[in-house]
C-alpha cells in the first residue's frame, strides 16, 4: 500500500492504493465515484475516459499511483452539483444516448475534443471519438450532440 495524493474534481484527496490498483478502480471503489464506467477493461471502449491534467485518458489503462500529484476530473466534476455541463445538456437534448453506459466516457472525450478544437466538423467529431465505442451504435445522435455541445460551450 502507498499513499496517493492528488486532486479529484477540484478537491484534494489522499488515500491508500495498492500498486496494482487501476485509476478507474481507485475512482470507483475507493472514492465512490461510479460515474466513470468500466466497459471492456482492455483500453478499447473509452467508457472509462477521465481528464488527467486536462487531457482525456483511459483510466482503465493507468495505475492509480501514476496519477500522483495530478488533477483528475470525472463526469461528476464537470459541473457543480445539481447542474449540468453544456455538453451534458446537449447529449440530453439531442438524445445522444440509448442505454447510457458509454455516455460518461463519450461526454468526457467530447469536452476534451471541443477544448482542443472549439468548432469541430462532423468528420472531426467522428475521428475525435475514435477511442469511444457505443454498443447501441447510437453514433448519429452522439455526433449531433457533440456539435450542439461545442456551440453551447462557445457561448
Amino acid at each position: 500500500m502507498a499513499t496517493l495524493t492528488l486532486t479529484v474534481n477540484g478537491k484534494p484527496v489522499s488515500a491508500q492504493a495498492e500498486a496494482n490498483t487501476l485509476l478507474v478502480e481507485f475512482l470507483r471503489e475507493t472514492l465512490g465515484l461510479t460515474g466513470t464506467h468500466v466497459g471492456c477493461d482492455t483500453s478499447q471502449c473509452g467508457a472509462c475516459v477521465v481528464h488527467l491534467d486536462g487531457l482525456a485518458v483511459k483510466s482503465c489503462t493507468m495505475l492509480a499511483l501514476q496519477a500522483e500529484g495530478t488533477e483528475v476530473t470525472t463526469i461528476e466534476g464537470l459541473a457543480p452539483p445539481g447542474s449540468l455541463h453544456p455538453m451534458q445538456v446537449a447529449f440530453h437534448q439531442n438524445h445522444g444516448l440509448q442505454c447510457g453506459f458509454c455516455t460518461p466516457g463519450m461526454v468526457m472525450a467530447s469536452v476534451a475534443l471541443v477544448t482542443d478544437n472549439p468548432n469541430p466538423s462532423e468528420p472531426e467529431v467522428r475521428q475525435g471519438l475514435a477511442g469511444n465505442l457505443c454498443r447501441c451504435t447510437g453514433y448519429q445522435n452522439i455526433v449531433k450532440s457533440v456539435i450542439a455541445g461545442a456551440r453551447a460551450m462557445e457561448r
Binding site: 483500453s43 473509452g46 475516459v49 488527467l52 487531457l55 482525456a56 485518458v57 483511459k58 489503462t61 493507468m62 472525450a109 476534451a112 475534443l113 475525435g128 475514435a130 477511442g131 469511444n132
Partner: peptide
C-alpha cells in the same frame, strides 16, 4: 496512432 486518449499517454 491508436485514438486520442491513447495518444495522450
Amino acid at each position: 496512432i491508436g485514438d486520442p486518449h491513447v495518444r495522450n499517454r
